[in-house]
Design a protein around this nucleic acid. Structure first.
Lengths: 107, 107
DNA sequence: ATCTTATATGCCAAGAAGGGCATATAAGCA
DNA sequence: TGCTTATATGCCCTTCTTGGCATATAAGAT
């Protein structure tokens, strides 16, 4: 499990970067199932990565009934710079496809 | 081995962050032995991490006789933002001690 | 109460990463 | 030629990480 302050370990995984990419696009809370649909990755896998991102302090959750709404902690001082960097860094086919898939899902 | 573009994996290790911390301080090429002295970590260990950082595109080497002078590729567009971020991120006892050790070594 | 849906989690196996150690390489020097 | 010094690398072992799968949890609906 990732310790406090070890942001880079949280970012050192492609699936997690894909998840963060979605958050950076939407700038709104996303539930697990939306992420699952967009990335086409098994639910248990996304759940695990979200838990890890939460422990790393990059996202948090709000539970509403059955749903868990995750959102980027973009106002956290510790996260501001790295998220700004990420926004430019996450380029390429996969990230773009994921973003398109999310847009369709959110319609 | 780290693939092209996977910067975060290169940063997801404390020893490598400690090495980068030295480069950010000195802004001058450093040879392996200087880093070994400052961090008090075995030479073979530092060598391996430097090779990895090189593959990640964060540093490069210039060989001069027996010595290998490594330097940060800080002018590389891809690296600018992340290095700026790192400069603020690398705080704490260990990093400060390492910096002091390097200063002594470079006298 | 039961069934369904959304999410989390425990266990396992495979692979990657890191450290230790010995040794290889290779340049300079006696 | 041999000796020393600086650096790189291969092997082994241990630990960490990830994904797959099954299952647990828990809320809503019937």
């Amino acid at each position: 499990m990732i310790q406090e302050g070890e942001v880079f370990k949280a970012l050192a995984d492609e699936t997690r970067l894909r998840v963060l990419n979605l958050f950076l696009l939407s700038e709104q809370p996303l539930c697990v199932c939306e992420i699952v649909d967009a990335l086409k990755v098994p639910q248990y896998n996304i759940s695990k990565h979200l838990t890890l991102l939460k422990h790393a302090g990059l996202v948090d959750v709000e539970k509403e009934g059955l749903w868990g709404y995750y959102r980027l902690k973009k106002d956290e001082p510790k996260n501001r710079a790295i998220l700004a960097f990420l926004k430019d860094y996450l380029t390429g086919e996969t990230f773009e496809t994921d973003r398109r898939n999310l847009e369709v899902r959110l319609l």
